[in-house]
């Protein structure tokens, strides 16, 4: 199972509405969360390398998420599931929904992004693994599978940590796990025939109430305008003046 979240494209510079009520997101370009594209690519490679019965792509969100699921099908997923809701779910609610899906689908592996680049939460995979009581390999940059046991190299602050774990498990991807393939036109045509099921979220779970209330959205503090120095002499002098070197 692979999770694909629909998010604002990473090239878009998101702006806060002047009244602090939220973000100006009307009409901005949307895409699959970049880490989730990496997750799907990894699933495809596992299938090509070790074999996998089926790859199911899952998205939780509005009906528009079908666009991202279609892209996932074109990349190579066999089947897609949209768990439809118009609410913006918190990570725990997403994890609870995914747990209910995991109970239905019984996957051997769930691959998801380490973080969604909209909320920057970096929580959902860990929460799913926790609710499921299964291993988690977060921030993975290398993954090998040998029967029922997997080995992951994880990008941690101190370097690269290697862990070994039993399947089923949750893996979250880091940027260097792979480079996702491009979708080719014939694949887009083929993807139109692949199954994409839409299920209302209340058929899956009723446990998605928010815990947090967002009371304000503000732009970040601006840095004071700097100056352009002429040469390295001036730069060293400026840094000396400030006592920085």
């Amino acid at each position: 199972m692979v999770c694909l979240k629909r998010v604002v494209d990473y090239n878009v510079r998101v702006r806060v509405k002047p009244d602090g009520s939220g973000l100006a997101l009307d009409g901005v370009k949307m895409a699959i969360n970049p880490f989730d594209e990496i997750a799907l690519e990894e699933a495809l490679r596992i299938r090509e390398r070790d074999g996998a019965e089926e790859i199911v792509a899952v998205s939780i969100g509005s009906t528009d998420c079908q666009q991202q699921l279609r892209t996932g099908l074109a990349m190579g997923a066999d089947r897609a599931l949209l768990i439809e809701t118009d609410s913006d779910l918190e990570p725990l609610a997403v994890a609870r929904t995914l747990k209910a899906l995991v109970d239905r689908e019984q996957p051997d592996l769930v691959i998801m992004g380490k973080q969604a680049i909209d909320g920057d939460n970096n929580q959902t995979g860990q929460m799913l693994a926790s609710l499921w009581d299964r291993p988690q390999a977060t921030f993975t940059s290398e993954l090998t599978i040998d029967g029922e046991v997997a080995t992951a190299t994880r990008e941690v602050d101190a370097g690269l940590e290697v862990i070994e774990f039993d399947l089923p498990a949750v893996v979250t991807t880091d940027l260097r796990l792979n480079e996702p393939r491009y979708v080719k036109l014939p694949d887009i045509m083929k993807a139109k025939k692949k199954p994409l099921d839409v299920i209302a979220i209340d058929e899956i779970t009723d446990d998605t109430a928010p815990m947090f209330a967002v009371t304000n959205v503000a732009p970040p503090a601006e840095r004071a305008k700097g100056i352009i120095v002429d040469d390295t002499v001036a730069l060293v002098a400026a840094l000396n003046d400030k006592g920085l070197i």
Partner: peptide, 23 residues
């Protein structure tokens, strides 16, 4: 909010049945 905390805290929160605030 280091890789250590990001890995651990959501797992703790889910065990406690609560959400988590990041960063």
């Amino acid at each position: 909010s280091t890789t250590f905390g990001k890995d651990l805290m959501p797992r703790v929160a889910a065990l406690l049945g609560t959400g988590q605030l990041s960063d």
